[in-house]
């Protein structure tokens, strides 16, 4: 069930309605309905294969890159359906940024990792200033300011991930999608990224997929719990079980499945 009262009355940043995702002819996720409020952190949790990453990738149409993927239903972003024919995915991705599971800095200098997105998107401001701002914003400036021309691959895993966050910020998106951003990081780097998420939510709406329930409870305002059910023929379909304030999900969930999952009984 979805608790409407939890979802702030103002116009949401994203609103998914009757969202279905297919890979080929198999349904992967069915009938997701939810609103992502502005300037909040929303966590997606759930067991493997429940479709939480799939839903996330619908928000910036990364699923378009998988030839067999097909999406029905609507996702509204500022009053338009993301999947309307008039919406260009390339333009959309400038406004909805993404950070991936594994840090994926480009094999370029740190400076050019940041500048790349700005250049292709026709940034007319001062590039040096933008690079510094973005790196400061991602709390990595002090660590890299003396080696901006070195390869982004030379950084540690945690630094690489903050570089990727800085790269996403640099193109001034309104929403940042994070797909398990800490799963490849050590605990200290994880903590730094979590602090950063706290900072960033002042200016951005953040949707974060995580396997780590402590992380969801630490960083998010709202939590959506997804689960999967087996279909005949062995395939699994994911669906949204419950979506509410994070405190409610973790301390007073409405559904038994949620209760079982957050208390570690499965998943």
């Amino acid at each position: 069930m979805v608790n409407e009262s939890a979802q702030i009355a103002t116009e949401p940043a994203l609103r998914a309605e009757n969202l279905n995702v297919y890979y080929g002819s198999t349904l992967a996720v069915r009938e997701v309905n939810l609103k992502i409020p502005k300037n909040k952190v929303v966590a997606f949790i759930g067991p493997s294969g429940c479709g939480k990453s799939t839903v996330l990738r619908c928000f910036n149409r990364m699923n378009d890159l998988i030839p067999t993927a097909r999406v029905t239903g609507t996702i509204s972003f500022q009053g338009t359906n993301l999947y309307a024919p008039s919406v260009d995915p390339v333009e959309l991705r400038r406004r909805i940024g993404m950070v991936f599971q594994k840090p994926n800095p480009f094999p370029k200098s740190i400076y050019n990792n940041i500048a790349f997105g700005a250049r292709i998107n026709g940034y007319k401001g001062d590039m040096d200033e933008l690079v510094e701002m973005s790196l400061r914003r991602a709390a990595i400036w002090d660590e890299v300011k003396d080696k901006l021309q070195e390869s982004g691959l030379a950084l540690s895993g945690g630094q690489q991930q903050r570089l990727c966050i800085a790269r996403a910020i640099a193109i001034a998106p309104e929403i940042i999608l994070m797909d398990e951003p800490c799963s490849a990081l050590d605990p200290i780097s994880t903590l730094k990224v979590e602090e950063l998420i706290h900072e960033l939510k002042q200016q951005y709406t953040i949707v974060i997929v995580t396997h780590n329930m402590q992380q969801a409870s630490r960083v998010s305002d709202l939590t959506a719990f997804y689960n999967a059910e087996a279909l005949e023929g062995g395939s699994k379909v994911g669906y949204l079980v419950e979506y509410d304030r994070t405190t409610s999900i973790f301390h007073n969930p409405a559904e038994k499945a949620t209760q079982d999952y957050v208390s570690g009984r499965f998943g």
Binding site: A118, Y123, M133
Partner: peptide, 18 residues
């Protein structure tokens, strides 16, 4: 540095000639 707030105003400086 107060650039945090100015970063968001950067959005206007993008001219995406798609």
């Amino acid at each position: 540095n107060t650039s945090g707030s100015s970063l968001e105003s950067q959005a206007a400086k993008f001219e995406v000639d798609i």
